[in-house]
Nucleic acid binder design. Sequence first.
DNA 1: ATACTGATTCGACTTTTGGCTAATGGTATC
DNA 2: GATACCATTAGCCAAAAGTCGAATCAGTAT
Lengths: 222, 222
Amino acid sequence: MTESDSSNFIVADDHPLFREALIHAIHNCVPGAVIHEADSLASLYEVVEANPDADLLFLDLHMPGVSGFSALAYMRNNHESLPTVIVSAVDDPAVISRAIQHGASGFIPKSSPIRKIEAAINAILQGEVWLPENIDLGAGGLDNEEARIAAAMSALTPHQFRVLMMLGEGLLNKQIAYQLGVSEATIKAHVTAILRKMQVTNRTQAVLAVQRLNTREPGLVE
Amino acid sequence: MTESDSSNFIVADDHPLFREALIHAIHNCVPGAVIHEADSLASLYEVVEANPDADLLFLDLHMPGVSGFSALAYMRNNHESLPTVIVSAVDDPAVISRAIQHGASGFIPKSSPIRKIEAAINAILQGEVWLPENIDLGAGGLDNEEARIAAAMSALTPHQFRVLMMLGEGLLNKQIAYQLGVSEATIKAHVTAILRKMQVTNRTQAVLAVQRLNTREPGLVE
DNA sequence: ATACTGATTCGACTTTTGGCTAATGGTATC
DNA sequence: GATACCATTAGCCAAAAGTCGAATCAGTAT
């Protein structure tokens, strides 16, 4: 009866087909597994809140509402006890390396054959950090800036994080307020708190900071 | 006496050491070559204006004031007659492919040995499009968005482009005005024109558009 | 010579942003 | 129960952002 008896997983990916495939693989590894799905930042919030005892989160790097390592950085500090595995179409060693440094418990390229994915799931359930073969973790280091931004971002509250992601879409305070069903005054208060925590002076700079956590080529920033 | 008798080149790169090495290689290929240098967007403007009859521009992808393909997109439309070769530390096939699609006349990785660089210069002077070996030009296509943004950006006037790049650094109108030595009202007018041409409604969205021309992993944008 | 186009400049005006204070209620934690 | 933090809102204010119309200037076509 109690869910703590069985394994609880969360699969966050906006591609239904891949979600299904991943769930299938998980079931093969853990027959009685209970799996919860999310296809956006908003639904990820709901599912994570509703299942605080989940054992593992499979997180896509790109979903509606979040992009890059932002969501990972956030999860690492607001739900420390929930290990997070990145599942992504990207398989650049530098991106993989950065994901691990941002606190991911593993990295599964979407291009992996089913067997490999199942092997990855099993390894991670054993507490291992699973990576594709031949990955040099020294490939892409986090520069100081990136680490600082990730730390600042993980200090944000859930609402603040959500608002920050919407700033990242170029929305007005008024639009954000409408979409979240609160007053504009509330959004302003959130934005002020965000700017403070991110140590920037206006929303454009905040958005630029978020962009640095995207999976762009490392080594280009002077 | 007339400069049109000799070959005119422009080398735009913010790394003095590499600039020197490249100039040396050019001299080896074209003994009497006249070479003009730029180490920032501002100086690139000056040099290009001062030498409208230049034969070839060597352009680094990352200089103070510009980043990614923005400068290339701009050059392609405002100085159509000046062929541009990208010189970059990046050698990702997708980046190379995108550079060519943005109108570059060649791509020289900085990691190339001197001989290769000289071979590249000779080939490009013959009118060829020079690429590193084994490059699959199908590697990274421009999505519609990226092509649209590049087109919009190349419709900007020099001043507007300059202002847009400064928006991309998170600067205030006031700061931009001070740096360019004009009134804040002028900058506001430029910004309004930029927003119109880029088909966005505020500066944050304009900055996000510019970011799409950076050399980040392609294929990640949903 | 005239007219037209486009770039640059700027002031006046409106809207949006962002900071500050203050108040309310909820929810943990101690 | 007290304390702390979060979310919410209002109201006020100063600063910044953005729009419009207008003047100037250069180049270009007629």
